[in-house]
Amino acid sequence: MSIQHFRVALIPFFAAFCLPVFAHPETLVKVKDAEDQLGARVGYIELDLNSGKILESFRPEERFPMMSTFKVLLCGAVLSRVDAGQEQLGRRIHYSQNDLVEYSPVTEKHLTDGMTVRELCSAAITMSDNTAANLLLTTIGGPKELTAFLHNMGDHVTRLDRWEPELNEAIPNDERDTTMPAAMATTLRKLLTGELLTLASRQQLIDWMEADKVAGPLLRSALPAGWFIADKSGAGERGSRGIIAALGPDGKPSRIVVIYTTGSQATMDERNRQIAEIGASLIKHW
């Protein structure tokens, strides 16, 4: 067993022997301040990774656009098919120029040779490549099948209805392509620590998230040296922004954090800054 596999296998073990965790309302004060600064709703939840206990939450059962955070769930569904012998990570998928959609920095470079399922998941999570996500959605049967996968996990809230990039439209009061912070946090925890996926697939999923290259201005910008984070960000229309993450000190994750916002007129930089400040408060009061 590799060191990384050992780390993920012992996530519940280490967490069980940690000192009790206590909620700190100071972080919620910052979440509410972010709402004021952005002029928009902000949803927040913080779960203990081992027990699933909610440590703090704000608007945990209000719907927010998922945006690209759905790509972690998508690759979880792909990995479940791999575990069941219905898919192979090494299978190569070929596609054409007509398949390319807006923001496809990886797939646009491989029109000639195609990409493997493993490479597509890596591109979808680490670079948020939209064509990679659409190609992977095709392998599982489309958005409705991802929703069905989530329902089978016990998540009857999260739903995907459309493809990239239309799913980022974020129309107010439109339930399409949305989740709730509580539902997303619980589902992410199941994917990373539950028995739904094999140990190898859980490790692969967290490795992809740990290698995320496009979430630097968010929670990662607030992390002290030595902290662990595996995350996936999302951005959408109407001032929408979000991030889902597993993080913790001492090089291992111990909490799940989900943050979503929508309806702001603020710039992307300002949305990023507010999420980073929430992260800084979380870490300060850990």
Results as ranks from 00 to 15, higher is better:
S68T: 01
K30W: 04
A266R: 05
R238T: 04
L282N: 11
C121I: 11
E166H: 14
W163G: 11
G236W: 02
R118H: 12
I140L: 10
E26Q: 15
W163S: 11
I140A: 12
A222W: 08
D250T: 04
K190A: 15
D129P: 01
A245K: 00
I275R: 01
D36C: 15
A222H: 07
M153S: 05
T116A: 05
A132L: 00
A211F: 15
V42A: 07
D250G: 04
A40N: 03
L188S: 05
L47F: 14
R220S: 11
T198K: 10
C121V: 05
T179C: 03
Q88W: 13
N173D: 08
Q86T: 15
K213T: 04
G114H: 09
M153W: 03
S233A: 06
G76W: 10
D129L: 01
V157W: 12
M209R: 01
L247I: 12
R189K: 15
R92T: 15
Q88S: 10
A84H: 15
L79T: 03
G194A: 12
G216Y: 11
L223H: 03
V72F: 03
I243M: 14
A230D: 00
D129H: 00
P60F: 08
S96W: 08
N130F: 01
L100N: 13
L55Y: 14
P60E: 04
R81K: 06
L120P: 01
P172D: 05
G194V: 07
I229W: 02
E87T: 14
Q203K: 04
V82C: 13
T112D: 08
I93M: 07
T179D: 00
S201A: 13
T198Q: 03
Q204S: 09
P60N: 13
G154M: 14
E46Q: 05
I283K: 15
G248I: 00
A246M: 12
E270I: 03
T112M: 11
S240V: 02
P249E: 06
D174N: 06
G43C: 03
D177C: 11
S96Y: 07
D231H: 08
V157A: 05
F64I: 02
L192F: 15
R59N: 09
M66R: 00
G242F: 01
V42T: 06
V214I: 12
F70M: 14
D174K: 03
Y95G: 05
A276Y: 07
R271F: 14
F149T: 15
E87C: 05
A182R: 11
N152K: 15
R202P: 02
G279E: 03
A170Q: 14
A215Y: 15
A170L: 05
G236M: 02
P172W: 10
K213C: 04
E56H: 05
R220Y: 03
Q86K: 07
Q97W: 13
F149I: 14
D33V: 06
M209V: 01
A246K: 14
T261E: 11
T198I: 11
Q274W: 06
S68Y: 00
E164S: 00
A183D: 04
L73F: 14
R238W: 06
L89W: 13
P217C: 15
G263P: 08
M184N: 02
A84V: 13
G90D: 06
V257Q: 00
R162P: 01
L49Q: 07
D99Y: 09
A225M: 15
E145Y: 07
V106D: 11
E119H: 14
A182Q: 14
V78H: 15
A183I: 08
S201I: 06
I125N: 05
R92S: 08
Y44F: 07
M127I: 09
T198A: 13
P172V: 10
N173Q: 11
D113E: 04
I54H: 14
G142L: 02
S281P: 10
R63Y: 14
Q97R: 11
L89N: 06
M268Q: 11
R41D: 14
R220C: 03
E61H: 14
I256K: 01
G236N: 09
E61D: 13
L205P: 00
L219W: 13
R220E: 03
T116K: 09
R273V: 05
E61N: 13
I125T: 08
L218E: 02
A266S: 07
L146M: 03
A170S: 06
S80K: 03
I171R: 15
A34Q: 09
K109W: 14
M67P: 00
L150K: 00
L160W: 01
F228I: 15
P143T: 13
H94Y: 06
D174A: 06
M184P: 00
S104W: 02
E237M: 12
R220W: 03
P60G: 07
Q274S: 08
P25K: 13
G226S: 06
E62F: 03
T131N: 06
G52Y: 14
E35S: 10
F149V: 15
E56D: 05
V117M: 04
L89T: 09
V117R: 02
A276V: 11
P143G: 07
G43P: 00
P65K: 13
L38D: 07
F149L: 15
N98V: 10
R92Y: 15
L197M: 15
R255C: 09
G279F: 10
L38T: 06
A225R: 09
H110Q: 07
A170D: 04
E237I: 08
S51W: 08
L111N: 13
G141C: 13
D177Q: 01
Y95F: 08
L205W: 05
E62Y: 10
E61A: 10
G39C: 10
E108C: 15
P224G: 10
G76T: 09
G52C: 03
V31P: 01
E61S: 09
E270L: 03
D33I: 06
I140E: 07
Q274P: 07
T27W: 02
N152Y: 07
G236P: 00
I206Y: 03
R273E: 07
E270M: 03
T131D: 02
K30F: 04
E175A: 09
E166Q: 09
E61W: 09
K232Q: 01
R176E: 07
L247M: 12
S68G: 00
W163E: 07
R92P: 13
R176Y: 05
Y44A: 03
R238H: 14
L219S: 04
K30S: 06
I283T: 14
R159A: 10
L111G: 12
Y44P: 00
T126L: 06
G142A: 05
M209G: 03
N173L: 06
S254Q: 10
S254G: 07
N173E: 04
E119F: 02
E175S: 12
R241Y: 02
R41N: 11
S122M: 07
D33W: 03
W286E: 03
A84Q: 15
I256Q: 02
S221E: 07
A34G: 06
A123T: 11
F64K: 01
E46C: 10
A276H: 13
I244F: 12
V157M: 06
E56T: 08
V72G: 03
L137Q: 04
A230T: 02
P224F: 03
H156R: 10
R189A: 13
T139Q: 13
E119A: 14
L196A: 07
S233E: 01
F228L: 13
D99V: 06
K53D: 12
K284G: 11
L150M: 14
V72D: 00
Q203T: 03
G141Q: 04
A132I: 00
H110F: 14
P172L: 11
H24D: 12
K71T: 01
A245C: 10
D250M: 05
A225Q: 06
A170M: 13
T178W: 01
S68W: 01
K144Y: 05
L135T: 11
A133Q: 01
D48K: 04
G251M: 14
